[in-house]
């Protein structure tokens, strides 16, 4: 797991750039900054938090069940492995 890298940047289009919090999911890292992301299950099976990944890479410790397109990620259960740029739905 490379999710304990600190100082990875998460650039949220039309919001601001935040720092990814080590050991947290991407969703938790964004919520720390009081930015609303739609969510339901927080476990990767419902797809409510589906978000566009514009650049960078993320990884999933557990296979996510929800349907996502090739350029989409599930912030509730993914961890950035590089600096990333995303666009919230």
């Amino acid at each position: 797991m490379s999710n304990n890298k600190d100082s990875l940047q998460v650039n949220i289009k039309q919001h601001k750039t935040v720092l990814h919090q080590p050991q947290r999911t991407l969703l938790e890292s964004i919520e720390v900054h009081q930015i609303d992301v739609h969510f339901h299950c927080r476990e990767g099976y419902c797809g409510a938090c589906r978000t566009k990944l514009l650049s960078g890479k993320v990884e999933y410790p557990n296979f996510p069940l929800a349907y996502i397109d090739d350029d989409e990620i599930l912030p509730c259960c993914c961890y950035p492995t590089t600096d990333i740029e995303i666009e919230l739905a």
Binding site: D36, H38, H40, C41, R42, Y45, A48, Y67
Partner: peptide, 25 residues
């Protein structure tokens, strides 16, 4: 999610507390 676009103007969740009940935790 199934490629039918977003036909409605609404952008933010009018009932944010709903998420707490739909969270599997």
């Amino acid at each position: 999610a199934i490629g039918l676009g977003q036909p409605f103007d609404i952008k933010s969740n009018p009932l944010p507390w709903m998420n707490n009940y739909l969270n599997s935790d």
